[in-house]
Simulated scan of single mutants.
Amino acid sequence: MAVLPVRRDDSHHQEIAERLIFESGRPVLIFPERPARPLAGSFANIAVAWDGSRPAARAVGDAMPFLRRASHVRIFSATDDKPMPSAARGREFAQQLTSEGVDAIYEEVKKTDQHTIGSFIENYVAAHNSDLLVMGAYGHSKLREFILGGATRSVLMNPPGWIMLSH
């Protein structure tokens, strides 16, 4: 795993993070170089951004050592952002983690048009006092992400705390 500080709105830092995520074949743990709130010293409360994609599943697999040690794991999906697998699949995923010794719950959260996916994730992490956010990197093509933005691009531009990304 690579661990990398990211400077807010610094394209050079974001480019390094992207290259590590997409070219290393390993998970990348990023954190803000100058965090708005103190960074957690341990990962007791973990949030997992879940969209049912292969990168999200890979991120969860890579994060299992952290998830097993966490006190609470909140798996969440934005219901009105993009087409998603059924809620039943999200609940089944949480039940699978629970059967592996992870204290996990699943919830669907309405994003609303007032938020970008990035601000939605940032607000979710802050509202639930999450020590670590686990998420898959890029659910869309890099060109589409560049033009439209997206969750990965948003967290790389402004990481809300510790974030583990996998692709």
Rank of each mutant, 00 (worst) to 15 (best):
V125C: 05
D103P: 09
P35Q: 01
L39H: 05
K111C: 07
E100R: 14
A88P: 13
L67H: 02
Y106I: 12
A87W: 06
H140L: 11
I16T: 09
E33C: 12
F66N: 06
H167V: 05
E92K: 06
A56G: 07
R8Y: 05
L39M: 02
A57K: 12
S42H: 07
D131Y: 05
E122D: 11
D113P: 11
N158E: 13
N123V: 09
R69F: 02
I21Y: 04
P85W: 00
F22D: 10
I30M: 03
L156S: 01
A2W: 05
P85C: 06
R69I: 01
I30R: 05
L156Y: 01
P65N: 01
M84H: 10
S77F: 05
I117L: 06
A127R: 15
F66C: 07
M84V: 13
A151Q: 12
H128D: 06
H167E: 03
S71A: 08
E145M: 07
R68M: 13
D9M: 11
E108S: 15
L20F: 12
R91C: 10
T112F: 05
R8G: 05
A36P: 02
W50I: 03
V28H: 13
S86E: 13
D80H: 05
E23I: 04
G101A: 10
F93H: 13
F66T: 04
H12K: 13
G25R: 11
I21W: 03
G161P: 04
N158G: 04
E107R: 15
I121K: 09
A87L: 08
F31C: 03
A78G: 08
D131A: 01
R26K: 15
M135K: 08
G61K: 10
G149Q: 06
V102H: 03
I46E: 02
R54F: 09
D62S: 14
T79R: 15
R153A: 02
S53Q: 12
V48A: 03
V73W: 00
M157K: 15
H13K: 03
P32R: 00
A49G: 13
S154G: 09
S154I: 14
K142R: 15
T79I: 12
E107F: 10
L132G: 01
G136S: 08
I75V: 11
R58S: 12
T79D: 02
V109H: 09
E122S: 10
L133A: 14
E15T: 14
V6M: 01
I147W: 01
T112N: 15
P32Y: 07
P32D: 08
A49M: 02
V3Q: 14
